[in-house]
Simulated assay, not measured.
Amino acid sequence: MSATDAPSRPVTDQLDTALMRWAAAQLLPEESATPPTGEGLEVLALLLRGQIQAAIPEIEHLSSRVSEDPVTYGAWLQVQVARRRLAATAGPYEVGLLWLARRLARSVIELADSHDRLMEVLS
């Protein structure tokens, strides 16, 4: 679907970027954070996955409404990185899940930033 074929949906702020940033902050920065473990880590990883899955279509929709190439290209790039991270699997040990969850957290922050930049351009 090209930008001209994009459905005519009103531009609204569908994402709670503050919640997205809060969830990601539970794992970042790596140097100072004491990450959750066990079930808490699993729940946080699922939350981050859900936030990415919700953010991708919203950012794609907003990008279709913005004609500024640097903004849309940056958002597109972040969506591609997030999709790759969603497709990744954790290793068999908790450290593998922590590694993946931190990458998902980075994508959540990057998608929240892209969303905010797109909303700023559209406002």
Rank of each mutant, 00 (worst) to 15 (best):
P57S: 06
T34M: 05
W76F: 15
V81Q: 09
L41W: 07
V43R: 15
L46V: 14
L111P: 00
V71D: 04
V108H: 03
V79W: 04
I109A: 07
I109Q: 10
L118E: 01
G50K: 08
V79M: 09
L118A: 02
E39T: 13
L19N: 05
R9H: 11
S67I: 11
A105T: 08
T4H: 13
G38Q: 01
T72V: 15
Y93R: 13
G96S: 03
S2P: 00
R65L: 01
L19D: 11
R9F: 15
G96H: 01
G38L: 01
R102I: 06
Y93N: 10
A87R: 11
G40P: 00
P7E: 10
L122I: 09
S2N: 08
R85V: 15
A18H: 04
A54R: 12
A112I: 14
G91P: 03
V108I: 10
R117M: 13
L15V: 03
R85G: 02
S114C: 04
Q80K: 14
A82E: 03
V108W: 01
G50H: 06
V79Q: 05
L77T: 14
S32G: 07
T12F: 11
L27I: 09
R85L: 12
R83F: 04
W99K: 12
R83K: 15
A75E: 03
S63W: 01
V11G: 08
T72W: 07
V66P: 13
V43Y: 08
W22F: 15
S114P: 02
S63A: 14
S107P: 07
A33E: 09
L28Q: 05
T72E: 07
L41P: 08
T12C: 09
V108A: 09
P7V: 12
R21P: 02
Y73M: 11
R21V: 00
S8P: 04
T89A: 14
E110L: 11
E60V: 07
A112S: 11
S114Y: 05
L97G: 10
L27T: 02
R106D: 09
L44C: 10
G40S: 04
A54Q: 13
V121P: 00
V108C: 04
D69K: 12
A90H: 07
Y73C: 05
E60P: 00
V71R: 01
W99F: 15
D69V: 11
Q78Y: 06
T37Q: 15
V121W: 01
Y93S: 11
L15A: 06
D16L: 08
T12R: 13
E58L: 07
S67C: 09
L122W: 05
H61V: 07
L47G: 05
H115M: 08
T89H: 11
H61R: 15
Q26L: 14
E110V: 01
V11A: 09
L47K: 10
E42D: 12
A112V: 13
L41N: 10
S123K: 08
V43I: 15
A33W: 00
R21W: 00
V121E: 09
P35F: 05
G91D: 04
Q51H: 06
T72P: 06
P57I: 10
